[in-house]
Design a protein around this nucleic acid. Structure first.
Lengths: 221, 221
DNA sequence: TGTTTTCTTAAATATTTCTTAAAATAAATT
DNA sequence: AATTTATTTTAAGAAATATTTAAGAAAACA
């Protein structure tokens, strides 16, 4: 696990570096805010520890600068002040957690692990097919990076298609997917939904009609 | 915090239920081992208190049954003074802590909190998501740095949202979170709570409705 | 205990989504 | 080409789902 430690105090920095190295973190230690920013640009870190009270740039500005660049790794802030006000501001500025000095290295390590765990808990289950991307966790659907607002049945239909692209889905299977009950659909509900989906997709040749059988999703690039 | 209390004694059960409710636990109280097992299957509890000397099933068997099903929430066992010799067996069977009756509810609450803390490895006390910041130790919630006065259920709901922003939380999961009992909610209690939460958040588009599925918290800036 | 807050319920309203059916279009068959 | 058959499109009403109120019940508080 690649960790960036931003800490100007020699004693504290060394203690953290040693303590975390022993706990399976790969620690890179820098002393200034400027170094922190350039390092986060260059390298791919998994997580960062940021001390406030840096010599060059104020901690909050470092934080903002990092977040503005779209770097969204978890950041744990070290602070001497124990004032709720500051902490709220920091969390607003993009910090994920904070600890007041002095602290126990065990707890620090535990919190870092918790942050990493929480992050991976977000794992968005994404499925894609050509220009279509779906996130089954947030239930979002995109076409060429643009979000589509899909109704429940449209979403379920598209998900079925994206999960098995190029497969021909028989019309009766799709109708069963749409009708909640064993309630048989006697009308052209399926066709209407496909029509609305095509409209939202823009490129309507993406869903191909297999006459007399059903539909399939084409996924060319 | 969802807690399952397994206790057949009326007086003791009531005392614990009241005492822990006052300390921000959401208590579901069942009287039998069978009920305990079925409840742990259905709901998502964070922690459980199990009295030995249940009328139907022996406590140790209940414990084994729970663990065999892969339910690994912390379990604190209540024993009478003359049962202390069984404690070793219980801890082997998967108990996390025990207390001998009679006990002080303050101590019980403290131990429960310790178990929860130990489990999550110092779960960070503060969590944030966009303009929302929550302090899970002091139970405060802020929007744009301003504190919101949330009722218990509103708080539980928002915490769930903030812990997994953008994730779609199915309505039945959220209903289970709100109903302390196995008492099924047949009404629109969830909707009303969401409505009140939105009102307190000010920006009511933060909680997005996923029609037919549930809700999710949007956390962009 | 009485008082206050919070929770649940239910009804009224609002909104979105689904189904239906009919007309228009396209493909296949004769 | 004319006919038949299948699919697409449109639009409107029906059904499902969500929001908002308000009031009584339950719980927490003092």
């Amino acid at each position: 696990m690649q960790l960036l430690l931003v800490e100007d105090n020699q004693t504290l920095g060394q203690a953290v570096e040693i303590g975390l190295s022993q706990r399976q973190f790969m620690v890179s230690w820098v002393r200034t805010g400027a170094a922190a920013i350039s390092n986060l640009n260059r390298h791919e870190f998994d997580i960062a520890i940021l001390d406030l009270g840096l010599p060059d740039i104020e901690g909050e500005r470092v934080l903002q600068s990092i977040r503005r660049k779209g770097i969204d790794i978890p950041i744990l802030v070290l602070t001497a002040r124990d004032q709720t006000r500051d902490v709220i501001n920091l969390l607003d500025a993009g910090a994920d957690d904070f600890m007041t000095k002095p602290f126990d290295v065990n707890e620090l390590a535990a919190r870092l692990r918790a942050l990493l765990r929480r992050r991976s808990g977000y794992t968005s289950a994404k499925i894609a097919c050509g220009p279509i991307v779906m996130d089954t966790s947030s239930r979002e659907a995109f076409i060429n990076g643009r979000e589509m607002m899909l109704s429940r049945k449209e979403y379920e239909l598209l998900q079925m298609f994206v999960m098995q692209p190029m497969k021909v889905h028989p019309r009766d299977k799709l109708e069963a997917l749409l009708s909640s009950d064993s309630h048989l659909v006697e009308s052209n509900a399926l066709e209407v939904h496909v029509h609305n989906l095509r409209k939202k997709l823009g490129q309507r040749e993406l869903i191909e009609t297999i006459r007399g059988v059903g539909y399939r999703l084409k996924c060319k690039d």
